[in-house]
């Protein structure tokens, strides 16, 4: 099969997966316990009678058949209409977009931060296998990997904000406020990346071609950068793409802790308010991004290592 055909097939699969994702998301909200209409009325302080409740359910469109509601919701999404928030009647899409923007800033900075640390450390500890450096790097990455990010953020807050007074406690979207949340997300991720990159590089260094290049007098630097890292990069992209899922989950926690105005904080607020359209939008957006990123990383892998 030609590459183009394969990509076309994968894109078709991708679309089917996304449709299933949207269906499951909707189903989940449909099956959810608790009545949003009731929640909404009680939060507005309205005395709930049967008539009032039914009228509100009617108004919110909760009484029509499941498939009709799903169809409407889905076609709406295709047209950019993600529904109206149960909480404040504002359209969901702009909220999600502005949250997504902030989350992207946070996620990208933590991703870059962790890669800046873990790529050199992973390579160095693979090259100097069993050296003191390798042992230290392995210990640090092992500990980093074992730290839940909520814990890191609480500890960072305590030591950097309170004990040493270096950072503001609340991250209101400023650059300074970005530091701690990004660091909290980056630390466990750097631990995982370092471990995985070290393994990848070691595997490449064991390949016969490395000896072959050495006996042809190619310098160790050229071997490492242009051959070993080059060959490992396909795998490294896959590793990164798979971490995006953990990063998304982590950003919900971190944004809530630091009040970073991202999509993760938005979804926690929405969960507390039973604001289903916003939660659905969140799951759909995150799922789509994850699926698309993994698709891209697959294609990239194929480009970088055409043997597969």
């Amino acid at each position: 099969m030609s590459i183009k055909k394969q990509i076309a097939k994968r894109i078709a699969e991708l679309i089917i997966i996304l449709i299933i994702l949207s269906f499951l998301t909707f189903l989940l909200m449909y099956l959810a316990p608790g009545d949003p209409a009731e929640k909404r009325l009680s939060s507005q302080g309205v005395a709930i009678t049967k008539e009032v409740l039914e009228a509100e359910q009617e108004r919110m469109g909760l009484l029509r058949p499941f498939m009709v509601r799903y169809g409407e919701w889905f076609t709406g999404i295709l047209h950019g209409d993600w529904g109206v928030s149960f909480k404040d009647d504002l359209p969901v899409a702009p909220k999600l977009i502005s949250g997504l923007k902030n989350t992207t800033i946070l996620a990208l900075s933590s991703l870059i931060l962790s890669l800046i640390v873990s790529i050199p450390l992973g390579i160095a500890s693979a090259v100097k296998k069993n050296s003191v450096l390798d042992h230290i790097v392995r210990l640090l990455s092992f500990i980093g990997n074992a730290l839940p990010n909520f814990l890191i953020s609480v500890l960072l807050m305590y030591f950097l904000c309170i004990v040493f007074n270096l950072f503001p406690v609340v991250a209101d979207g400023s650059i300074q406020g970005l530091c701690l949340p990004a660091l909290s997300l980056a630390i466990p991720m750097a631990g995982r990346f370092t471990r995985q990159i070290r393994t990848e590089i070691m595997e490449q260094l064991d390949q016969e071609y490395v000896t072959g290049l050495r006996t042809r007098g190619v310098s160790e630097k050229d071997i490492l950068i242009h051959n070993v890292f080059h060959n490992a990069s396909g795998h490294i992209f896959t590793i990164i793409a798979l971490q995006i899922g953990t990063l998304m989950g982590g950003s919900v926690v971190i944004e809530t802790i630091f009040r970073w105005p991202g999509i993760g904080k938005l979804v926690m607020d929405s969960i507390n308010a039973r604001d289903y359209p916003t939660i659905m939008g969140f799951v759909l957006i995150m799922g789509t991004i994850y699926v698309v990123i993994n698709f891209i990383s697959d294609v990239l892998y194929h480009v970088l290592d055409p043997r597969v």
Partner: peptide, 20 residues
């Protein structure tokens, strides 16, 4: 496969959130 296609923690937060 389908389950693995979605980010685990995102699914978990949404489901746990909805289950209340």
């Amino acid at each position: 496969d389908l389950m693995l296609a979605f980010p685990q923690m995102v699914v978990a937060i949404a489901v746990a959130g909805i289950l209340g």
